[in-house]
Structure formats: C-alpha cells, structure tokens
C-alpha cells in the first residue's frame, strides 16, 4: 500500500504525458467520424509515417546529439513540420485512395472498414520492406533534465514538451473548428451534410480538410512520441492507434473536446492501473476500459457528439 501511495504523483505525471499523445491521436479519429461516420483504422499508419518523417529529418540534418538554443528551436521546428506534412499528406491520400471511390458508389460501411484495414497493411508492409522490421532508434535530441517536482514526482523537460505542445495544438484546432468559416463548414457537414450542400459547402473539400487536420494532429503526436520514447518501427502505430481510438470512444466519439478528456483519462487510468497491477498490465487495463465504456456508456464521458456539439 505504501508503495502505491508513493506512486500517485509519478502516475499522474506519466499518465498526463502519455494521455497527451493519446488525445492528439483521438482527435484524428473523432474528426473523421464526425463528418463521415467512419472509423479511419488507417490512422495508426498516418502516425507511423509521421515518426519516420521526424527521424529522416534528423538524419538529413545530421543531428545525433541534443542541440541547444536557437539550433534546438530550428531542429524541433523542422521535425514538427516534416511530421505534420508527411502525416497530413498520408491522411489525405488514404481518404482519396481508400474512401472516396467507395463513397462515390455509396458503399456499405463494411466496405470502408475493409478498405481501411487494407490501407493499413499496405503502409505497414511498405515501411517494413524498406526499413526492416526491427525497432529503429531515435537520437536523443532533448536532454531529459528534471525541471521541477510535483509532489514526489520528477517532471522532465521531455514531459513538458509533450504536454505543452499537445495543449497548444488542441487549442489551435479548437479555435479553428469553432472560430473560422472553414471550421463552421466542418461542423455543418457533421450536423447535416445535405443541408450543408444547400448552403454551398463543397463536401469533398471539407472531407479532405478534415483528414488533413487529423493527419496534422497525428504528425505532432508522432514527433512527440519519437522525442519521448526515442524509437519507431513499421508497426509502431498499431498500439498507439488503438489507444487513440479508445480515448476517442471514452470521451465520446465525434466530440472534439471529448477526445481531449478521453486521451488524458485513458493515460491516467492505464498508468494507475500499471501502478496497482504492475506495468505489464497497462494494456489490459486500457482495453478493459474500452470494453466497459462500450458496454455501459457507448456515447462516452462527454456524450454529446460533434453533430450536436454546442461550441
């Protein structure tokens, strides 16, 4: 018991950090679900491509050390932009290749699901063939100094980077969706697609934009993951993707603010689960949460979906 008490603050800090990454991933699932009523299971590979884009940018810049000052800012800007661009592009590409042709034929949602899984395997295998199936290490580009303490927990610089960047991205996304003309177009399509057409909204363009936004969020998540965990792999997106999906369902799928709540809630639940049952049980705890939510509260914590969202 004493052991668990000493774990409370560290669990909160760790859970918030992983939760921030889950939340960024959850946004991608929730945005796409909001406008298309479709779970984009290829979103995990959108994330995977982002981690590789960050890594290759580091290689191209010959960065295998932790840069300081202005150089650090430049390096982080470069890997962030690379990951956002790569993930955003792949997300838009997946929509264009795997979903759009089916949508034009009014295919069933099952066909979309199969198409998504096909896309997912395709991307994984391309990367596996090209870069192998082993874990690929990232250089340490951020010294993991302890910046301050919360309770008995150490808060390191990389944790601050992860949570801070995630919060900034979420804020920007929220402002975009709720405060701009294009964002209003996204909400209109989510609430009533055919009425949106009557208002002059180009649905295809809104869908592309939605995948792009989800991809950009996954790209930021990927850059943060690479900096924090310092590895990637052809199938790195699988577990993160399912966690992001769980977080989206937990918060209320289709609800943007729900994705944030769900992400942080899942991060905290699983680290506390790990603290109680030992770390090997983390994934069991996370997926038990998914099953329980689906059983008892399928609309998630916030419940209200993007269609009915007030903001």
């Amino acid at each position: 018991m004493h052991n668990f008490v000493s774990q409370i603050w560290p669990s909160i800090v760790d859970g918030t950090t992983t939760g921030a990454i889950y939340a960024l991933m959850a946004l991608g699932y929730t945005l796409v679900y909001g406008v298309l009523r479709l779970i984009n299971f290829a979103h995990s590979e959108v994330f995977m491509v982002g981690t590789f884009a960050s890594l290759f940018t580091l290689h191209a810049l010959h960065i295998n050390y932790a840069p300081g000052g202005i150089e650090a800012i430049g390096v982080f800007a470069a890997i962030t932009i690379a990951a956002m661009a790569a993930s955003g592009l792949v997300a838009v590409g997946v929509e264009y290749v795997a979903y759009r042709p089916l949508r034009k034929r009014n295919s069933s949602s099952l066909a979309n699901l199969i198409s998504a899984i096909g896309m997912s395997f395709f991307l994984q295998e391309v990367f596996a063939l090209r870069y192998g199936r082993d874990l690929i290490p990232f250089p340490r580009i951020l010294l993991k100094n302890v910046l301050f303490h919360i309770g008995n927990a150490e808060v390191r610089s990389d944790m601050v980077l992860v949570v801070g960047s995630a919060l900034v991205m979420m804020f920007i996304l929220d402002r975009f969706v709720n405060g701009t003309r294009l964002g209003r177009g996204i909400r209109a399509v989510a609430q009533d697609a055919s009425t949106a057409v009557l208002m002059g909204v180009n649905i295809d363009r809104v869908i592309t934009l939605t995948f792009l936004l989800g991809g950009i969020m996954a790209g930021v998540a990927a850059m943060l993951y690479g900096t924090f965990y310092e590895v990637t792999q052809y199938n790195i997106g699988f577990v993160i993707g399912i966690k992001g999906f769980t977080a989206a369902v937990l918060g209320g799928i289709g609800n943007i603010r729900g994705a944030l709540v769900g992400g942080f809630a899942l991060g905290l639940v699983e680290t506390f689960g790990g603290a109680i049952f030992t770390a090997q049980w983390i994934d069991v705890v996370a997926f038990s949460v998914l099953v329980l939510v689906l059983l008892f509260r399928p609309t998630g914590i916030l419940g209200e979906s993007l269609q009915r969202a007030r903001a």
Binding site: R181, M199, R308
Partner: peptide, 19 residues
C-alpha cells in the same frame, strides 16, 4: 428542421453566407 441544430442562430445565418 433543416437548420443546424447544434449551432447558434448567428452561426446558422453565417452558414447561409458561407459562399
């Protein structure tokens, strides 16, 4: 009820002016 139920009146009118 062909309005956007989750938006405010102003946002609905704004949708009318979307183009």
């Amino acid at each position: 009820r062909g309005i956007f139920p989750g938006m405010t009146v102003m946002d609905n009118l704004g949708m009318g002016a979307y183009t």
